[in-house]
Write a protein that binds this DNA or RNA. Structure first.
Lengths: 139, 139
DNA sequence: TTGCGTGCAAAGGTTTTGCATGGCA
DNA sequence: TGCCATGCAAAACCTTTGCACGCAA
């Protein structure tokens, strides 16, 4: 018996293509709808939401929130950037919305501490550090 | 001529009381509405939102988002807790959904490192560590 | 008296859900 | 042929806004 997500459909393929094409920029569900329809696709809104949810579960994209926007942001987790090195962490600037990728041993140390002392195992893919980036802080 | 926020009203007072009473727990706008109405208040939803917004601006409470919930979370910035000690961080268990509050000096050290070496200033109230809590890991 | 704060209801926007149909395996 | 995926529309939700009235100063 087949299970959820086992079928390969045109919409699914086009959506993944569209997302891989975002290269480091975050997007909303509405962005994807607009972009795909411009490209001639007739994908439905509900399908976009359902597929985005699946991709988040699979770790292909990550989901987060930026204050000013009332809708969720997604971002493609490019395997070239994210899986070759040690776990990579994300820092999201609350001002400019930039997403920094950080490969920092200090964070790894913190993880070990949290695990040893507090029993909490951090999931690097889901965790996003919010704050202010260097450039915005200068202003 | 009076300016915005210059009037002292019953609703405003009751709402602040209600929020001070949350001691370390986060809440949504709906939580406040329910809690206040249980206490006999007849405050309107719009007023709760308007007052919460004002309190965020004043820095009395802070606002952030948690993935699964579609509504904003608020938390009272108790002056006793937040200015004497290190800031408090949130750890969200991906399995059971529990939100832990953590007051840990190691995280503070990480913050200082990120700021000094990477120029990134973490916002403790917005940042949520996702992972697996001790209890769920035991299973 | 002045005009801010409130409550209600309606509007606005995002995301989810129900259901019949379409399409992959 | 099974049954998952899709699309549409409606619903569900959270939050904001317009407006008339009440109430603080």
């Amino acid at each position: 018996m087949p299970e959820k997500g086992s079928y390969k459909t045109k919409q699914k393929e086009e959506l993944v293509e569209c997302i891989e094409d975002t290269r480091g920029k975050h997007f909303t569900a509405a962005d994807i709808c607009n972009k795909m329809r411009k490209n001639g696709s007739t994908i439905g809104t509900a399908t976009v939401y359902r597929q985005l949810e699946r991709l988040v579960d699979e770790g292909v994209i990550s989901k987060y929130f930026i204050d000013e926007s009332s809708s969720a942001c997604f971002e493609y987790m490019d395997p070239d950037t994210h899986q070759k090195h040690a776990p990579c962490y994300h820092c999201k600037c609350e001002k400019c919305g930039k997403l920094l990728h950080m490969d920092c041993s200090e964070i790894t140390e913190l993880n070990e501490h949290l695990k040893a002392e507090h029993g909490f195992t951090i999931d690097p893919l889901r965790t996003v550090f919010y704050g202010i980036c260097a450039e915005c802080a200068d202003k």
